[in-house]
């Protein structure tokens, strides 16, 4: 069987057109074909790869090379083309895919497997469920009573560094990056001669929960690895928030941050682990973090 599906579709469409049933249409999908046994084969490449993502959809542009240059000058979605006033099917579906993956990340749960791999037990904030968590950021900054008791019971008191992991707004951020960043971080801190606390996982966590944690642990430095709010197409970015002796009342001004930790166009998690170690060493050296660290360490 040598006839391709394009030929089959073209023939059928020609017949339909002759009968006035369909208007002239563009080329049928290049993604489908018929195999040797005559069965339909749809075996698509990943449309989220850069080459497909940036494909130009404009029919007969006035200046094809010029249009390519325009599109290359920005990450905005240009040159996408249109069907009447609406987007082409492929750009519509790519958009839906990009949004879909953000929703899966926000409403996802960090896998048991990854928590077990690093021996993380789980505690909860005062936001018991995901919808409440989204409605009440203030509750995501507070540990519930059971969490406080569990942490007190299970954790080493007063280590140099306490590492916590929180889901934040992206479970995928933890699932995809923890395996790379955690060992780099642990190894780096130990090599620096720092003592580590007992790590754990906080569900429905906001950044401010590190204050509540250290009110119990009294570590010198808290490192919180937490999922960021997913952007369209990048749903697994993680942030590392660090604070010197965080206590209730401390704000972002008292913290340092490495953001956009992801293998999808951000800071590589292995490198990020090394950056965190450097930050922590400085914090301990100067007994400060955030704006104060920049003041006492004398740099901008």
């Amino acid at each position: 069987m040598t006839q391709t599906i394009e030929e089959v579709v073209a023939r059928v469409l020609a017949e339909l057109r002759n009968e006035g049933l369909v208007p002239d249409v563009q080329q049928p999908s290049a993604g489908a074909r018929v195999d040797d046994a005559g069965g339909l084969v749809i075996d698509l490449p990943d449309p989220t790869e850069e080459v497909h993502r940036r494909a130009i959809g404009v029919t007969d542009p006035a200046d094809p090379d010029g249009l390519k240059n325009l599109c290359a000058s920005t990450s905005a979605r240009l040159g996408v083309g249109r069907a009447g006033p609406r987007p082409l099917t492929r750009s519509l579906l790519l958009f839906k895919a990009d949004h879909g993956v953000t929703q899966d990340a926000i409403y996802g749960v960090v896998s048991e497997e990854i928590r077990e791999k690093f021996g993380l037990f789980t505690v909860h904030t005062k936001a018991p469920e995901r919808d409440v968590y989204l409605l009440r950021p203030d509750w995501g900054r507070l540990l519930d009573d059971e969490a406080k008791a569990t942490i007190k019971e299970n954790c080493i008191q007063g280590p140099d560094v306490q590492i916590c992991v929180g889901d934040g707004l992206s479970a995928a951020a933890i699932d995809n990056n923890l395996t790379d960043i955690y060992p780099a971080l642990e190894q780096g801190l130990k090599s620096a001669g720092l003592t580590l606390g007992t790590p754990f996982f906080i569900e429905n966590a906001r950044v401010g929960v590190m204050n509540d944690v250290n009110a119990i642990i009294h570590a010198k430095v808290i490192v919180l690895l937490i999922g960021e709010r997913p952007g369209l197409g990048i749903a697994d970015a993680m942030s590392a928030y660090m604070g010197f002796d965080p206590q209730p009342g401390k704000t972002d001004a008292d913290r340092d941050l490495i953001c956009m930790i992801t293998t999808h166009g951000g800071t590589n998690p292995l490198e990020a682990g090394a950056y965190v170690v450097e930050f922590v060493k400085r914090m301990i050296k100067y007994s400060a973090s955030g704006v104060r660290l920049r003041e006492v360490a004398g740099d901008a």
Partner: peptide, 24 residues
């Protein structure tokens, strides 16, 4: 906004396609 995806502000708004769509 290009395809409704703001490359700077990280939120979704109406696309360049949407005003002509509503007009039509």
């Amino acid at each position: 906004v290009p395809m409704g995806d703001d490359a700077m502000l990280s939120y979704q708004s109406t696309s360049y396609h949407d005003a002509p769509s509503l007009r039509q």
